[in-house]
């Protein structure tokens, strides 16, 4: 019994750990897309953030400095995105793709030039990383069966960014649905003309959304390189930005449903990690590549089983111009 609980709890705990970058990116995408900017560039912003975090954390031996750098770099990328598709009304998808390619190239070039370790950053010492935190009374509650296991292994023992992410979801929901900024954000993605004639600057609002998107992607990047791993690795985002985008679509651009979609993807990822090399009854050992493909396959199935266009912000993808 206790063994089963332990197994389940540890599976869920790794689900949570794997979900964090997805959730952050999906929330980032939520801001961008609710404002009317399709954000294919989540992946690139996250990757750039991951590299910035690992580099600065290494130089300054501080995880928090790394986080700040990640957010700044990622915001800079978001501003370039905004400059292309808000100021110059460029194709949003193309701009996002440009950022993705640019991030892959820049991080590899700079890592190679700065650290001479073949495109990765040096391994970070514990002090320069976000380390697991123990919640209060872990020792006392840990003794209680089941509940103790859940408390110690599922709720406690994560790093600061995990708790930050958990707190951010309700905050984002509140901002989007209960504040002036949220009202305007939701409006500008649906009908920017209405926002413009109400005396609000469409461009400024969209830039603000891109700032939020950049900041969140930066946190996601820092999580990858300074919390989950101890260095930046080439292309370490591995499509997570796109999974997050799919989760956002599946979550109908709403914070809470999107959170659950991210958890589903992360669960698939956690599960595939567990199943590697395991003999399944009746099937035998599943090839490792098939397991690794599981999250991507799941994304496809969810996207295909669910027609997303009906719920998308109506003006997303369309550069704003006063003339119709």
């Amino acid at each position: 019994m206790e063994d089963l609980v332990l197994q389940t709890v540890s599976l869920l705990a790794s689900t949570v750990r794997l979900a964090v970058p997805l959730i952050l990116c999906a929330l980032a995408g939520l801001f961008a897309e609710r404002s009317g900017v399709v954000d294919i560039g989540l992946e690139g912003k996250m990757l750039a953030g991951a590299f910035a975090a690992a580099s600065v954390a290494f130089w300054l031996q501080s995880a928090w400095a790394g986080l700040a750098a990640a957010m700044l770099v990622s915001i800079a990328f978001a501003l370039v995105h905004g400059f292309a598709c808000i100021t110059h009304r460029g194709n949003q998808v193309v701009a996002g793709m440009a950022l993705n390619v640019l991030a892959v190239g820049l991080t590899a070039v700079l890592a190679f030039a700065w650290f001479q370790e073949g495109g990765k950053t040096p391994a970070l010492a514990d002090a320069a990383r976000f380390r697991p935190l123990q919640l209060p009374f872990a020792a006392e509650i840990g003794a209680v069966p089941v509940i103790g296991t859940i408390y110690v292994r599922l709720l406690s023992g994560h790093n600061a960014l995990v708790y930050l992410t958990a707190a951010l979801v309700p905050v984002v929901a509140f901002v989007v649905f209960r504040t002036r900024f949220g009202l305007r954000l939701r409006a500008v993605g649906e009908n920017p003309h209405a926002v413009d004639t109400a005396g609000i600057s469409v461009a400024r609002l969209r830039y603000e959304a891109m700032l939020a998107s950049g900041a969140l992607c930066g946190i996601a990047g820092a999580y990858l390189s300074t919390a989950q791993s101890a260095a930046f690795l080439r292309e370490m985002t591995a499509g997570k930005g796109f999974l997050a985008l799919a989760a956002l679509i599946f979550g109908k651009w709403m914070p809470i449903p999107t959170l659950f979609a991210c958890l589903i993807f992360a669960f698939a990822d956690a599960l595939q990690g567990r199943l590697q090399g395991v003999e399944l009854p009746g099937i035998g050992e599943v090839p490792v590549q098939a397991l690794q493909a599981l999250p991507y396959l799941l994304t496809l199935l969810l996207l295909a089983g669910f027609v997303g266009k009906a719920n998308a912000p109506r003006a997303s993808g369309i550069p704003y111009s006063k003339e119709k």
Partner: peptide, 15 residues
């Protein structure tokens, strides 16, 4: 080369 490629997508495509 990938950096150049990204910049070309940016300037010749989005911008």
């Amino acid at each position: 080369v990938i950096v150049i490629q990204g910049l070309i997508i940016l300037f010749c495509g989005a911008l």
